[in-house]
Design a binder for these strands. Structure first.
Lengths: 261, 261
DNA sequence: TGTTACTCCGTACACTGTACCCAGTTCTAG
DNA sequence: CTAGAACTGGGTACAGTGTACGGAGTAACA
């Protein structure tokens, strides 16, 4: 048993190796046969597999056979599965770096673009929401996107603490909502139970509580059709978050102006 | 329970069984020996184990031995692990129902209380953030808390769509931020690498990029100490979200007033 | 021509969820 | 009072996981 491999990468040496792989100093040697694979190919194959079948279906053996190699061969390139996932994450962020870099406009336009990009990223790679990315194994691409997003809130009256908090707030909202929405979509696909049938079964049990008047708000909201309407929660929430940030900024500017007088 | 499960639990019958367990119609029979366990005890043991050691450490065998039973005995009470986790989730929500019910005040005070409660819940049960809760296997307690939270935004000018979106926005922010923060805390505990040592290793690789001026904002924010300051991202973000909702509400009221004239 | 450093990868082990099945227990019908 | 039905506990087994270990083959350097 390996130990808690919540995402692997444990131990000083594993961390160092992982970072070395991300920040790319190949350090190749001439001796012995030429490697048949590359880290890039492995990461690519893993991402494709995760995109298509989800994180739970991702196994070292399956990646290896997809590449026409033996299972243990992967461990010549990558120290363990956790690090491989870290590499996948950073690779995914690469897609956004150049696009994010091109964004112009005021803080709001930029933060909005940042939010939309992150949203689209989660739609492309839903498995990203399942990887425990709390421990910030920061690769060059994820750091670059963070750096760029921080630019959006620079020089608008925020302290550094607040700048970071602003970006984190947007990111938290986007990832949180994405997790709700996307996993909901996946579930209906995976279980093979259509949405209406699902609600029918639920209703069988929830019904009595509704009749008893114990869930008045859900009844009201449900009867208005809010659960399967086309209303865009992302747009609504994003507007809220940005409006709120605007209010914070206005407050900072007001106090700054006071101080100058 | 009868062995009649066709698709093993993910199908229609599994869903129905799961809901039956949550909404509680025990349907006990007199024949045979009295059961030595109860669903409640199993769920309780599972929650305790997940609280203490995380979701990945939770296994049917370990729960069983913690209860002094054989591994397969659990399957007399619960059709599979997925349903057990659904039960755990709903059980956890129970803790909040009565507290949430007692909240009074205007929409903002109530939503704020709701957010703080959810935040505290994730702090108590960090594994909640790792369970794939996309498929909304709605139990009585999670539905009750949702119902109560919807009350906060009733009769303030929102359509039903918007009411739902408001609650979802707050919830998305809280869960998203909780995932970031809590998993970060867990990681430093679990890997046994202290925060400063962690950043030291990171710096070894990130350093060159910083020196090259490729990460100007991260450099600036980092040097200001924002990464390990005591600044409360939750408070900041929550204020933003609520301010933003306030702006939406004000906008609705303005248009409604226009229409009346 | 060794020697050495490197490659690929088969085997093995400690785990996982859970299907299947049998022994033992308790109530009920005859 | 007894036969059988209905039930519970749980052992065994299987397919799957991550990965430690070590052996076999290969290519460059001495």
């Amino acid at each position: 048993m390996p130990r808690d491999d919540d995402t692997g990468g444990h131990g000083r040496e594993g961390v160092r190796r992982s970072l070395q792989l991300m920040w790319g100093t190949p350090e190749e040697s001439t001796r012995g046969p030429k490697p048949a694979l590359t880290v890039e190919r492995i990461v690519r194959a893993a991402i494709d597999m995760a995109d298509a079948e989800g994180l739970t279906a991702l196994s070292m053996r399956r990646i290896a056979t997809a590449l026409g190699a033996g299972a243990m061969s992967l461990y010549r390139y990558v120290p363990n599965k956790g690090v491989l996932i870290d590499l996948m994450v950073d690779e995914v962020y690469r897609e956004d770096v150049t696009a994010a870099d091109a964004v112009r406009g005021d803080w709001r336009e930029r933060l909005e673009a940042f939010a939309r990009q992150e949203w689209a990223l989660y739609l492309r790679h839903p498995w990203m929401l399942q990887v425990p990315q709390g421990r910030p194994m920061l690769g060059p691409n994820s750091m670059a996107t963070t750096d760029i997003s921080l630019r959006a809130v620079d020089d608008i009256g925020f302290t550094e603490d607040e700048m970071l908090a602003a970006v984190v707030t947007v990111s938290a909202f986007v990832s949180g909502l994405a997790k709700m929405i996307i996993e909901g979509m996946q579930a209906s696909e995976r279980t093979g139970i259509a949405d209406d049938e699902w609600w029918e079964i639920q209703g069988e049990f929830v019904g009595p509580a509704v009749v008893a008047g114990k869930l008045p708000m859900l009844t009201k909201v449900g009867e208005a059709g809010a659960f399967n309407s086309m209303f865009d929660n992302f747009e609504f929430g994003l507007r809220c978050v940005l409006d709120g940030l605007g209010a914070q900024i206005a407050a900072r500017r007001a106090t700054a102006a006071d101080r100058e007088q």
